[in-house]
């Protein structure tokens, strides 16, 4: 049997598979379809330090080979999260990487500290796609200086591996990746869904309730693979690759570009068996190609 274990900044995953935050429910939705411990790590829904209802409907629109969404990262209050979610997350027998978001540096610092102090999580993913309210609404992750300043501040709050999840917008991702690495991030998750929108040709008005949303699914995969390729060349911390992965071929593509682990996202909504199938197929692929260790393919497209 080939080795499937990967190590993301000290998070030991028995295989390279995790899920995109917000794509795997939070209420046991997928346990009906396969055991959660099949995953290398679980990344539950992003949490904020405050309650947030999310965006007004409609929140979804179909796109060619993808999904346009503006859910808006709804979040329950910290008290409810601790009471309702944490006891469930505690029992999960694989590493849990909690994803967090904030609108200001202070909110990120607060939520990272709170999550870290729980002692339940194997790592913390910082979703850097949120607009920085104090900097004119540009997302933290679009600005190397804002990202660096933020990572330095949250770094002081936790010893847990910090994973910076980067947005692909504004074509600055390589500089942002270098900035978060130098500021002390332990890994990079990429790419978050790029901003996108649709306009109804009949009404000539935006389709989504929030007007602007983000595109996910196979439509964004070539962009994500390219950006992983570029960032892999620029940093030495591990990359969790994501963006339109649907099967084992996509996994191999992302890993060859430089990802050490991968996240299945929107495909979970469409095909509840995508993950178990891809895991089996990946194993078979490694056997058929005489690859003893999945780590061998990380970045192999660069050689």
């Amino acid at each position: 049997m080939p080795n499937l274990c990967v190590n993301i900044a000290g998070i030991k995953m028995k295989n390279p598979f995790t899920v995109g935050s917000g794509t795997f429910g939070n209420d046991g939705e997928f346990e009906k379809f396969f055991p959660i411990e099949l995953l290398g790590a679980l990344t539950p829904k992003t949490i904020r330090s405050y309650e947030w209802p999310g965006n007004p409907p409609p929140r979804l629109a179909e796109a060619a080979a993808g999904l346009l969404s503006s859910v808006g990262i709804p979040s329950k209050s910290w008290e409810r999260f601790v009471k309702e979610d944490v006891p469930v997350l505690k029992k999960i027998p694989i590493p849990v990487i909690q994803s967090v978001i904030g609108r200001t540096e202070e909110e990120y610092v607060e939520i990272v500290k709170k999550c870290s102090d729980l002692g339940v999580f194997a790592g913390i993913e910082l979703n850097l796609s949120c607009p920085n309210l104090k900097q004119g609404g540009l997302s933290f992750g679009s600005d190397p200086q804002a990202s660096e300043s933020l990572i330095k501040k949250v770094r002081k709050q936790t010893k847990l591996p910090l994973i910076a999840k980067l947005p692909p917008d504004y074509s600055n991702i390589v500089n942002v990746a270098k900035a978060v690495e130098s500021a002390g991030a332990d890994a990079i998750a990429m790419i978050n869904a790029p901003r996108a929108m649709a306009i109804d040709y009949k009404t000539r008005k935006p389709v989504l309730g929030n007007k602007v949303g983000a595109l996910s699914g196979p439509a964004i995969k070539p962009i994500a693979v390219y950006l992983v390729w570029e960032v892999y060349k620029a940093v030495s911390i591990p990359i969790i690759g994501m963006g339109g992965i649907v099967d084992f071929r996509d996994v191999i593509e992302f890993m060859s570009a430089g990802a050490r682990a991968v996240a299945f996202g929107t495909i979970n909504f469409i095909d509840t068996q995508a993950i178990p199938r891809a895991l089996k197929d990946l194993e078979n692929y490694l056997i058929e190609n005489n690859i003893d260790d999945v780590n061998e393919i990380v970045g192999c497209a660069h050689c």
């Binding site: 209802p53 409907p57 929140r59 979804l60 629109a61 999904l67 929107t266 909504f269 509840t272």
Partner: peptide, 26 residues
């Protein structure tokens, strides 16, 4: 409503429901 997953995972198909305090929840 337009739906993504049909099982409650994507939180895409929400409607406003009244809460006791007169506000709403999705």
């Amino acid at each position: 409503e337009r739906m993504g997953c049909g099982i409650g995972a994507c939180i895409g198909c929400v409607c406003k429901v009244r809460t006791k305090d007169g506000a709403f929840t999705y």
